[in-house]
Design a protein around this nucleic acid. Structure first.
Lengths: 226, 226
DNA sequence: ACAAATTTTTAGATTTGCCTAAAATTTAAT
DNA sequence: ATTAAATTTTAGGCAAATCTAAAAATTTGT
């Protein structure tokens, strides 16, 4: 039950990775996929999966991939809660930019103290989203995905607010900074170029031309939904 | 030079322990002393000392004890700076009590990010002392011990302000809380019982009888010094 | 369906940090 | 000054987490 507190850093990182991969496809997560994302070898993944399986954190049958148990999911949500709360802290209280927070939050997310994280939550006034627009699970692991659409998939003339990024790599985030794109910006899709899928948008008054790749990594919340 | 960033958690803990033991006696630090404080075995200490020695963090000759090099000292001060800044953060921003901060700070002190710690320093308005009255090294490792005396050693009728504790165990700190003793309290030594060394003091207006052991773990800053 | 390609697992090593037990060295005592 | 006691180091092992290379199972292609 409270084994959560006995987990090693490595175990926590595996659980987190399996959670993220499990979100995307609804399938079981492949050993190779975990290895690739964690920059380790498949054989190492197999070893760890066996260990996690014995701790009842994952469901595992040889050669059949892996999925989180409810205990594993709860654990993952706890780690993600910590990661995202620390990201908010770094941006709001320590003036980090959104491309600088991930690396440090990767370390901070492993600090063990319920009191610490709940106090941090309170200090930050219980934020619901992190600096990249991703939802922050509450104390019990509950969280709501925000209604949002990829900019690349909304019809022409859609109006909305930029509420998140799909890719939160430093490279992409710095690009957005350079082009004055930030969460909270008002966006209108003016034109879509059929040839390459690039978009002509109006963002906070300015006009901007963005490629399909960029648009496919920006989330907006539209106004015209019920 | 920048090997500081390649240190493991365990290496950092040894360096910190050697620093603390080195402060007390001016001697070389004994293997057994390190083992006892870290709750490990002398043989493990020897192993680690060899490793630290190869990294130029400690001076070591077999059977002759160990001392920090200047690089080792710098490293230790960096860790202590982080530890104490995090303690201030926990008390000032997250409403931890002074007996709760140590355990969590032991974890936080190993987070690696210069930007993080310097921003934290700024957020806290560059504090000079931690919640137990211990000095916080600055960015370059410089710090000044405050002029202070153990309450057990000042003459009768000395007046001063409580500025620190020698023992900062949770047990002692909770005892102080229970008896309404805190940093900043105004203290006057009224009487010293020869038989057992206990003291009769006036603290923020109240009268209090404290044992020698308690007095020997409380620092005051007196007014009558040059 | 069956061979080829891919994925996954096993087997055997390595590194880090720790352990126990025994040997080496230093310190203390008579 | 020797012996006894304490300290410290060495030797050999163990568990965690990783790796390489090889074997096993699954999936794919025709």
């Amino acid at each position: 039950m409270h084994k959560l507190y006995l987990m090693t850093r490595s175990e926590e990182n595996y659980i987190k990775t399996i959670f993220h991969l499990g979100r995307k496809g609804t399938q079981e997560v492949a050993t190779n996929a975990i290895a690739e994302l964690m920059e380790t070898k498949p054989s190492s993944v197999t070893d760890m999966i066996k260990k996690l399986s014995e701790k009842n954190l994952v469901n595992y049958k040889r050669y059949q991939g892996v999925s989180l148990t409810s205990l594993g999911t709860k654990t993952a949500l706890g780690i993600i809660r910590k990661h995202r709360l620390w990201e908010v802290f770094l941006v709001e209280k320590l003036d980090f930019s959104w491309d600088e927070v991930h690396e440090v939050a990767e370390q901070l997310e492993h600090i063990k103290s319920d009191k610490l994280i709940d106090s941090l939550d309170r200090l930050l006034a219980f934020p619901k989203f992190d600096p990249h627009g991703d939802p922050i699970p509450d104390k019990n692991g509950g969280f709501k995905e925000r209604d949002r659409d990829l900019l690349s998939e909304v019809p022409i003339n859609t109006v909305g607010v930029c509420v998140g990024v799909k890719d939160s790599s430093a490279t992409f985030l710095k690009f957005l900074d350079k082009n004055g794109i930030a969460l909270g910006n008002q966006i209108r899709v003016k034109e879509r170029e059929e040839f390459d899928g690039s978009l002509n948008i109006e963002i906070d008054g300015r006009n901007l031309q963005i490629s399909h790749v960029i648009a496919a990594n920006l989330y907006i919340k539209t106004n015209d939904e019920i």
